[in-house]
Design a protein around this nucleic acid. Structure first.
Length: 653
RNA sequence: GCUGGUGUAGCUCAGGGGUAGAGCAGCGGUUUUGUAAACCGCCGGUCGUAGGUUCGAAUCCUAUCACCAGCUCCA
């Protein structure tokens, strides 16, 4: 039975090897390690293919046993959950037709056509209940290979046009069905062994989604959900959702008076209120100082420009759909600036440039206007008018790599200040020629250079084909916020196309003209979007250097207003943003209001402070931190601001 | 842009065919206070906008605008 040609060798992640007889299943392999592992196993990954536990293994190779704690395990778990969602809907809404139902990063969804019936969030609890009931039936997921003809026949009889559409693209011999209970689905798999390992479901949302993502085809109803092997995990997840909701920048932005959206001013055109303006100006000043240190020169360019500029750059009509229509003036067409780069290119061309000047680094907090689809607009994070922390570096080819390194270093430094971990992605082109400008040779060169730089810096990175911009490949910085969400922010792009289009030249050592290379880069990307992320990252509890109001002076009664005024004057003269609360309120109320306004420091002033000349200091979210000689407190405060310290990192001893 | 949901006072929300309500905020007064809400009083809305149905519309219908969740898109 255990002859060598009837067996296969499995390589475990720790390098151990073990031989099993043919016909051994993933479950058996897991069980041979430990019964506990077998109990918790959801699927296996063998030779990079994720497979059902129950499937007999026919060839050996590296294996991973996927439990809930692995990415593949979760995917299997959620995919199976999607099938249960489908079965529940089939029971509750006979006649429903099914699109696709995959696992996603956080849970799963199923796209369904409910015919004339409209399914709304109000229906979700009933579906959830049905799903739980189905899970408890302890149904097994059964895999079956089906000839194409039979598969087509099945869905014809079931009258399911979407599955038939999917079948069109599948080859005979590769088609599998999965069945649990009364639900059979066209599905590649894999699935978990039995439905009852799913202990908790939560349906999160209902949304429309086009069949195959094509806005010309029918819109299906997409139900999003998530599921867990333990009820307590669902509870934790729901707490997390609440936390994200509490941090919503639209809510906090309003409460803290950071920005407003006014429909008379215009949808998607955010207005920075005084508090928000302080925050944004601090961010800009922080970056500007850093850029000056690194040899950038700041410029300012107008908000509208002649259409010819964008025709030259190629942005128009490439992005015509997402630009505001040109305005006609004096028989010329002008357009709201959709990007800053062409302006900077003209600055470069403004005079003859020598190799001695290069690299030239032009930076601008440049406001641009793009016509985003109305359904896309969202608070500060997706708007129609926004300011980029843009810069363009014009350099020789020899300087390119060093300049890219500088950009990466700047970006990493910037995000380290906010305690945001950065992941790096190289966004390259794919085979779709129409998406890109410039010749292939330049592209390949640029992609090679980016990769070399990343390697030389020893960066961990992933490569994303098809994510490049139309004029060149880029390095994208994906940051993680305080609650683990990922955001694509900064970018560094190499551009060989624009120098050609704008015929940019510099005079080299050989006294002849050469083309510079351009690097486009923006650490924050958009001040608006970055601010929205920052609000949620800090939950509105900004570091002192960014806080609109840094110190609240709280006199205990109006007998101490003079003391508040004295400190207000001193602190203001030191550049500290300070406010005195001289209302006729009790100290508890003043504290409460300052806490709610998320002011980092509160100074309580009363008789004791008048006599001793010290200050009694309270830190937002921490409470009373003690009494300090005023000079000592001022020193703590100024250090905290100068060093861009994060909240909660102070030691007041 | 598409689908669904929502739009009532500065904010958070209740009311759901008979002609607007609470808390907070604001204002006036009283209180002069020691680490997260003092007390009393007052002001405040043509119920997103425009049509329609009706004796009568915040409420029902239509259109439109905005916002929210997705989809699609993203230099």
């Amino acid at each position: 039975m255990s002859q060598s040609n009837d067996s296969f060798e499995i390589i475990f992640p720790d390098g151990n090897r073990k031989t099993y007889p043919k016909g051994t299943t993933g479950y058996d392999v897991a069980h041979s390690i430990s019964p506990g592992l077998a109990r918790n196993a959801l699927s296996i990954t063998l030779n990079d293919e994720v497979m059902d536990l129950s499937r007999p293994i026919s060839e050996g190779g590296p294996i991973k046993i996927n439990t809930w704690d692995t990415e593949d395990g979760k995917m299997t778990f959620w995919h199976s959950s999607a099938h249960i969602l489908a079965e529940a809907c089939q029971e509750l809404f006979p006649g429903v037709r099914f699109g696709i139902g995959p696992a996603i990063e956080q849970g799963f969804y199923y796209d369904m056509d409910f015919g004339d019936r409209t399914v709304t969030v109000d229906d979700l609890p009933a579906i959830e209940e049905k799903m739980t009931e189905i899970a408890r039936r302890k149904l097994e997921f059964e895999r079956k290979e089906i000839p194409k003809k039979e598969a087509v026949g099945y869905f014809k009889e079931k009258n399911d046009p979407y599955k038939l559409d999917l079948l069109k693209d599948l080859e005979d011999g590769t088609i599998t069905f999965y069945t649990q209970g009364n639900f059979t689905d066209l599905c590649r798999g894999p699935h978990i062994p039995r439905t009852d390992s799913i202990k908790a479901f939560k349906l999160l949302n209902v949304a429309g989604a086009y069949w195959r993502g094509d806005s010309d085809s029918k819109q299906l109803t997409r139900i999003y959900g998530i599921s867990f092997p333990k009820k307590s995990m669902l509870d934790d997840f729901l707490v997390m959702m609440e936390e994200a909701k509490k941090r919503d920048h639209k809510k906090l932005g309003k409460e803290l008076g950071l920005y407003m959206i006014d429909n008379m001013i215009g949808s998607g055109l955010p207005v920075w209120l005084p508090n928000g303006t302080i925050l944004r100006r601090r961010l800009e000043a922080f970056l500007r100082d850093e850029q000056i240190k690194r040899g950038y020169q700041e410029v300012i360019t107008p908000h509208i420009a002649n259409l010819r500029l964008y025709e030259t750059s190629g942005h128009y009509p490439y992005y015509a759909d997402s630009q505001y229509d040109p305005i006609e003036v004096d028989d010329e067409k002008y357009m709201l600036k959709p990007m800053n780069c062409p302006h900077h290119h003209r600055i470069f061309s403004n005079k003859m440039r020598s190799y001695r000047e290069l690299p030239i680094r032009l930076s601008e907090f440049g406001t641009v206007y793009r016509y985003e689809q109305s359904g896309e607009l969202n608070g500060l994070s997706r708007v129609r008018g926004f300011t980029q922390d843009d810069a363009h570096i014009y350099c020789t080819h020899d300087q390119l790599k060093d300049e890219i390194k500088n950009c990466i270093d700047l970006t990493q430094y910037v995000f380290s200040i906010f305690d945001m971990p950065v992941d790096i992605r190289l966004s390259f082109r794919d085979d779709n020629e129409e998406k890109y400008g410039g010749n292939l040779e330049y592209w390949e060169r640029a992609q090679k250079e980016l990769r070399e730089v990343a390697d030389e810096l020893g960066l961990d990175y992933t490569i994303a084909p098809g994510e490049a911009s139309f004029y060149g490949p880029k390095i994208d910085f994906i940051i993680r916020d305080a609650i683990g969400r990922k955001w694509q922010l900064g970018t560094v792009q190499v551009d060989y196309v624009m120098p050609e289009r704008f015929e940019l030249t510099y005079v080299g050592t050989d006294n002849s003209k050469h083309r510079p290379v351009i690097i486009h880069r923006a650490p924050f990307g958009s001040m608006e979007r970055f601010t929205s992320i920052l609000i949620e990252h800090f939950a509105g509890d900004f570091p002192v250097w960014l806080s609109p109001v840094q110190v609240a002076l709280l006199p205990i009664s109006d007998q101490y207003h003079d003391l508040a005024e004295k400190y207000e004057e001193i602190l203001s003269s030191k550049g500290i943003r300070v406010k005195s609360d001289k209302r006729s309120e009790q100290i508890g109320a003043k504290i409460r209001d300052s806490e709610n306004a998320k002011i980092p420091y509160m100074i309580i002033l009363g008789e004791r402070e008048r006599e001793s000349g010290s200050v009694s200091v309270r830190r937002h979210k921490q409470g009373d931190i003690g009494t300090f000689a005023f000079d000592k407190y001022l020193n703590i405060l100024e250090t905290e601001i100068r060093e861009y310290q994060l909240p909660g990192k102070q030691n007041y001893n």
